[in-house]
């Protein structure tokens, strides 16, 4: 594998730093060299900054220009960061007039977008190196039945994101099965986690959505959830705990960021992957992981 400008994203750096620490360690063990870029800022987040697309583009182009200076592609841990940085990168590479306007704004801080790099999500790197990943599995996660939630912003628009089929995503399932776990199918697989609804909408609606999604996962036979996006992780963890309390229903579906599952399969303990920071836990799942170890 190779060197990348490491872009963990605000959510992980501020709210879920245990995932940053684990990602550095696990990706390092797989041979991915992560280079820190001190001046990276928020990507910026696309839903909020959609009120001013030019500012969104210029701030994203600033981050891209920092990686260009190092001659490195960006590797991110977040679907939202991937959406912003890849979309802007592609727009500016393909539209000279727009690139000129963005660079005019960037000139105020003596920076320039040149269109020299690509933006990658860690899941893309892993699926491209699946055999190498399998070689690192020391204790297969047998007995774990996992509902995979790929998330919206790595899937759409497919002509830009190019990761998987937005209507029938299977790549995360492949990654999970490479660890020896079983990826289960469920009918609401492509339904959003509801992050924006919980932020700008009503708590009740967000909980109704979560209840539908979690029930669908349970009907599919899942005992745990896998995600590749920190917002989705937070929604299925903290959101699930809150919805379960308010609705009086226990779903008990612990959620794992994919790199946590990979670490477990590589022989790390639950404590080493940061399971103590999770809100939703399930003793049966913990036992299954202990048996696997």
């Amino acid at each position: 594998m190779r060197r990348y400008a490491f872009f963990p994203g605000c959510f992980i750096r501020v709210r879920l730093p245990h995932l940053e620490a684990l990602s550095r360690r696990i990706l390092g063990e797989l041979g991915v060299k992560l280079v820190d870029v001190e001046n990276f800022t928020c990507c910026p987040e696309a839903v909020s900054l959609s009120v001013d697309k030019m500012s969104w583009r210029v701030m994203a182009a600033r981050n891209l220009s920092l990686a260009e200076e190092l001659g490195l592609d960006i590797l991110t841990l977040c679907n939202g960061c991937l959406y912003t940085l890849r979309t802007v990168n592609q727009e500016l590479k393909g539209d000279e007039e727009l690139r000129g306007r963005v660079n005019d704004a960037l000139s105020i801080i003596d920076r320039e977008f040149r269109g020299l790099i690509e933006v990658r999500h860690f899941a893309e790197i892993l699926i491209e190196n699946l055999e190498k990943l399998k070689a690192h599995v020391e204790r297969p996660l047998e007995g774990l039945r996992i509902a995979c939630h790929t998330g919206c912003h790595i899937l759409s628009p497919p002509e830009i994101m190019g990761f998987d089929d937005p209507y029938d995503p299977v790549i995360l399932d492949e990654l999970v099965e490479a660890l020896g776990a079983e990826a289960v199918d469920y009918d609401l697989k492509t339904l959003c986690c509801g992050w924006t609804l919980s932020t700008y909408g009503s708590r009740e609606a967000s909980e109704r959505l979560l209840a539908s999604k979690l029930n669908s996962m349970r009907r599919g036979g899942a005992t745990a959830i896998a995600v590749i996006c920190p917002q989705c992780f937070h929604q299925f963890d903290v959101g699930q705990a809150s919805a379960a309390r308010r609705l009086g229903v226990e779903y008990r579906l612990p959620v794992f960021y994919y790199l946590e599952l990979l670490a477990l399969a590589m022989g790390f303990s639950l404590d080493e992957v940061g399971y103590r920071y999770h809100r939703v836990r399930n003793r049966e799942v913990e036992r299954a992981l202990e048996v696997a170890g």
Binding site: N39, S55, V58, M59
Partner: peptide
């Protein structure tokens, strides 16, 4: 946040880069 990052052996977060975002926001009208 800062405490947890320190516990995990991660570098503290700094905000100096935000100055460039402020300048961009002034330039674009944000």
């Amino acid at each position: 946040t800062m405490r947890r990052r320190a516990e995990l052996g991660l570098k503290p977060l700094t905000t100096e880069a935000a100055e460039e975002l402020r300048q961009i926001a002034l330039k674009t009208g944000l």
